[in-house]
Design a protein around this nucleic acid. Structure first.
Length: 260
DNA sequence: ATGCCTTGTCGCACAAGA
């Protein structure tokens, strides 16, 4: 089973790009972030006609996540538990079954958290604490679990071309990195890191200041795998070429293959 | 040091992103 994650930065702006990518790479499951669309306006037919079941959790203007799957999505659950006041559409879970079992998949768009001297940063940290509690809960099921998405956290200095430039940024704050490490320490495997990427492997390049041609990127889109999922990991990759396409997203897809 | 781009919003600039 091929599972991919991609922050598309607007489904309306990226409709044809996303369709082209799906046709070329044919993931079984695609987790999308920043759809920037309410559910009613989401162009679901454009993806259903490519053979996908479509689940969305959107809001007006910003954020929003979606999961596409070639086989039906079961037990779909939107929203990260732990704060009933939180109205931001950033989290969607579903189960995909195969002949040999099932995989629980979480699609997330973790808060950016900048600037760090505003309520946005504590919101990010609180969100990460809620995520840790949720993953802890899901791990009890012992079903293969894949938590995929735009984490908005640079795990290590080697995950940025210019780590010093990110000092003081919410994506590279010690608190953000610690919170991600706590998640990993529950027993989760960072698929890209585990498959020993080349130095200079990134998933995001800013639109500004020629970041892409200079490879001035950061690695912030991750797939974290439970032990049961990590045991079945057979391949992992990054569709970097999409960053060079016309009208690109500033993120690129990251994917894994699981033997299930 | 700041802005550099891009998207969406009932637009005629601004917020938000990272």
């Amino acid at each position: 089973m091929k599972i991919a994650t991609w922050n598309i930065n607007g489904v309306k702006a990226r409709l044809e790009t996303t369709r082209t990518w799906l046709k070329e790479t044919s993931p079984d499951v695609a987790c999308l972030q920043e759809i920037k669309s309410i559910d009613e306006n989401f162009p679901r037919e454009a993806f259903e006609e490519l053979g996908y079941h479509v689940e969305t959790h959107g809001q007006k203007g910003f954020n929003g996540v979606a999961i596409f799957s070639k086989s039906p999505l079961e037990d779909v659950a939107a929203r990260l538990p732990g704060d009933d006041e939180d109205e931001q559409a950033r989290y969607l879970e579903a189960t995909v079954s195969t002949e040999t079992g099932a995989v629980r998949i979480a699609c997330l768009y973790l808060p950016n958290g900048n600037p760090i001297d505003t309520p946005k940063f504590p919101y990010k940290l609180a969100w990460m604490k809620r995520l840790e509690a949720r993953v802890q809960e899901l791990l009890k099921d012992e079903m293969p679990l894949v938590v995929a998405g735009d984490y908005n956290v640079i795990p290590m200095p080697e995950d940025a071309k210019n780590p010093k430039a990110w000092t003081g940024d919410a994506l590279f704050q010690p608190e953000s990195r610690t919170a991600l490490r706590r998640l990993v320490n529950l027993g989760m495997t960072d698929a890209v890191r585990a498959t020993d990427p080349e130095p200079g492997t990134y998933t995001f390049w800013d639109y500004q200041a020629g970041a892409w041609p200079k490879n001035n990127g950061i690695r912030i889109d991750h797939l974290l795998l439970s032990p049961q999922a990590a045991d079945r990991l057979s391949a992992c990759g990054i569709d970097k070429e999409t960053r060079g396409w016309e009208k690109p997203s500033d993120h690129v897809p990251v994917w894994i293959e699981l033997n299930v």
